[in-house]
């Protein structure tokens, strides 16, 4: 510290009466014997007295009221640092809770999206149907009294509801195998034109031995068209129908299908029922040639009723309103005329 600063501090402390007796005597001796120090001390005294003489300012008249109002507000709003800390913790907890809920909600949404995109619809429905259903464990045990007469259980008739099935629009191929392909082709084209379905014909492919018509239209239009084409069955050696299953490019093929069967299959709304009907007709038609052979064997004057070899066609037991629903359904049909 500079000597000057030391003297300054000493003089100021002496002026303020902050020195002990020894230091005070020392300062006094310094002031008495040194002109410069004395002048300095007197100047300090003057300036100190100037500041001390400044008028005192009183607090505004409303200070007390303002303070008490603020204190009341603080108490009412509980704005003390302690309560602010607690409020802060509560706020933090709430924020964490909301964040967790939001994350869970997003995760659930993501799961639903992934489930919807990657899992087949039938599996989804099965999963949803089985979700929450408790599996009942099967208890296997020996009947304690084997000879005891069991009370007959009355089985009541239960209405069989159509099972849930995925909504799969009809997609089928209809193959006309004929020796007069030109006539059949002309008739098919004319029928399409008459039904004003040419605009809904997405492709017409003509090859050397076959002609393809690909139609995408309402099922009602399709049924009308097939109704018009019924006359072609007489011109064909065979008519084959392939009904597409839920799996891409997988078909149930029916040989020697009649026009009425085609119409029936087309009218079925329920996918499972449609496929079951197609499979049944396919199996029946596969058996029919054997019945024709037997028919020929007994053709010579036997009394056998040949109708007994005709297997009953599957009958649709769907509720009445299903047919009405089919009218607006989209459908896809590929008509193939083959030599």
């Amino acid at each position: 510290m500079k000597e000057f600063d030391k003297t300054e501090e000493l003089l100021n402390s002496y002026l303020d009466g902050e020195l002990d007796e020894r230091r005070s005597t020392e300062a006094k001796r310094l002031i008495d014997h040194d002109e410069d120090v004395r002048a300095k001390y007197e100047t300090l005294e003057k300036y100190k007295s100037l500041v001390e003489a400044l008028p005192c300012d009183k607090a505004p008249g409303n200070t007390f009221e303002e303070i008490t109002h603020r204190l009341e507000r603080e108490v009412l709003w509980d704005n003390s640092p302690e309560s602010s800390y607690k409020a802060g913790r509560r706020h933090l907890f709430l924020r964490r809770l909301v964040t967790t809920a939001a994350v869970l909600f997003l995760a659930a949404g993501l799961f639903v999206i992934i489930f919807d995109v990657f899992v087949p619809e039938s599996t989804r429905k099965q999963f949803v149907a089985n979700f929450g259903r408790e599996r009942q464990s099967q208890v296997l045990y020996e009947r304690p009294f084997a000879d005891a007469k069991m009370e007959p259980t009355v089985v009541e008739d239960v209405r069989v509801e159509p099972e849930n099935s995925p909504i799969v629009p009809l997609s089928a191929k209809l193959v006309f195998k004929t020796s007069a392909p030109i006539q059949v082709d002309m008739f098919v084209g004319k029928a399409i034109m008459n039904r004003q379905l040419f605009a809904k014909t997405t492709a017409v492919v003509r090859k050397s031995s076959s002609i393809y018509y690909e139609l995408e239209c309402d099922k009602s239009d399709l049924i009308s068209l097939i109704d018009d084409l019924a006359i072609l069955w007489k011109k064909c050696q065979d008519v084959q129908m392939s009904v597409e299953t839920e799996i891409f490019d997988n078909y149930v093929t029916i040989d020697r299908i009649s026009a009425s069967d085609v119409l029936e299959i087309c009218q079925v709304q329920n996918y499972n029922q449609r496929m079951r009907m197609a499979e049944d007709i396919s199996k029946i038609n596969a058996v029919s040639p054997a019945a024709m052979v037997i028919e020929k064997l007994y053709a010579g004057g036997t009394d056998i009723d040949l109708n007994m070899f005709e297997l009953p066609k599957p009958v649709l037991t769907e509720p009445e309103d299903v047919q009405a629903k089919t009218i607006e359904d989209p459908a896809k049909l590929t008509i193939i005329v083959q030599r």
């Binding site: 005192c56 300012d57 607090a59 505004p60 200070t63």
Partner: peptide, 23 residues
């Protein structure tokens, strides 16, 4: 209140600020 206000006013130099700081 007067002593606090007086000292605060001499330090901050503004009456309104001094009143607020005193409160």
């Amino acid at each position: 209140q007067d002593r606090v206000y007086n000292s605060v006013l001499k330090i901050c130099g503004n009456r309104d600020d001094a009143a607020e700081l005193t409160q």
